[in-house]
Simulated scan of single mutants.
Amino acid sequence: MNLNNKDPQQLLQRSFTIGIVGIILCFIPLINNITAFADPKKIFFLNGFGLAAQFMALSLAILVIRKRKIPHEIKDKSKRMIIVLSVSILFFFLNT
């Protein structure tokens, strides 16, 4: 799959979807620490999958911002996506 030929709006939508899934996967172990609905040792691996998904979404957003000749609105959306994903990755790294 060659991502350089894809539509920037479609790549940004995929980045958003993958980023939301990654954030949700990282929140499940945090909620488990509070409510204890499962064994923490068995559910902790979701943090890894969530962080991997967030890194993938971050790389897609960076790929969009590096493209040439795209509208200014899409570049702004990509910049905001990069900031949000960077903050969420930092939060989940510091929280584990």
Rank of each mutant, 00 (worst) to 15 (best):
G50W: 05
H72Q: 10
G22T: 05
S88W: 04
V64C: 12
N2E: 00
T35E: 12
I34T: 15
P8M: 01
I83R: 04
S88E: 01
K79L: 10
S15K: 05
D39N: 15
L58T: 07
A52S: 13
F91Q: 00
I83F: 11
N32Q: 08
R14T: 09
G19S: 09
V21L: 07
R68Q: 09
I65H: 10
I65Y: 14
L12W: 04
L3G: 00
I28G: 01
L3T: 00
I82R: 02
L85I: 05
R80A: 13
N95K: 13
A53C: 10
D76M: 13
S78I: 01
I28N: 02
Q13I: 13
V21Y: 07
H72P: 05
V84K: 08
F27I: 08
P40L: 02
R66G: 11
D7F: 03
L3Q: 02
A57D: 04
L11G: 08
L58R: 04
L94R: 02
R80Q: 14
I74N: 04
V84S: 09
P71I: 05
L90S: 08
F27Q: 13
F44S: 09
K79E: 11
R66L: 15
D7R: 03
L12I: 14
E73V: 10
I82K: 12
A57C: 13
I70Q: 04
Q13V: 09
N95C: 03
T35A: 14
D76A: 12
L11K: 02
A52V: 08
L30E: 15
A36D: 07
L85T: 00
L90G: 01
D76V: 06
R68M: 09
L46W: 09
D7Q: 08
I70C: 06
G22V: 04
S59D: 15
A53T: 07
K69C: 07
L51P: 06
F92D: 00
T35M: 14
I62M: 13
K75W: 07
I83S: 12
K77M: 15
P71Q: 09
S59T: 11
K75L: 10
P40W: 00
L12S: 10
Q54P: 08
I24W: 01
L85H: 01
D76C: 08
L90P: 02
Q10W: 10
M1Y: 02
K77C: 05
C26I: 01
G50R: 02
I43G: 00
I65D: 11
N47Q: 15
I62C: 09
M1N: 03
A57Y: 03
L58A: 11
L25V: 04
P40C: 03
N5H: 06
N4D: 12
K77L: 12
Q9Y: 13
F92R: 03
T17Y: 06
I82V: 15
K41Y: 09
S86F: 11
F91D: 00
R80Y: 06
F55V: 09
I82G: 03
S59A: 15
H72S: 13
M1R: 05
I34E: 11
K67G: 01
F44V: 14
T17A: 10
M56D: 08
F37A: 05
H72D: 12
R80E: 11
A53K: 06
S59N: 12
K41F: 07
L30Y: 09
K6Q: 15
N32P: 03
F44R: 13
I23S: 04
N2V: 00
L46Q: 09
I82Q: 12
R80F: 11
I62A: 12
F91H: 00
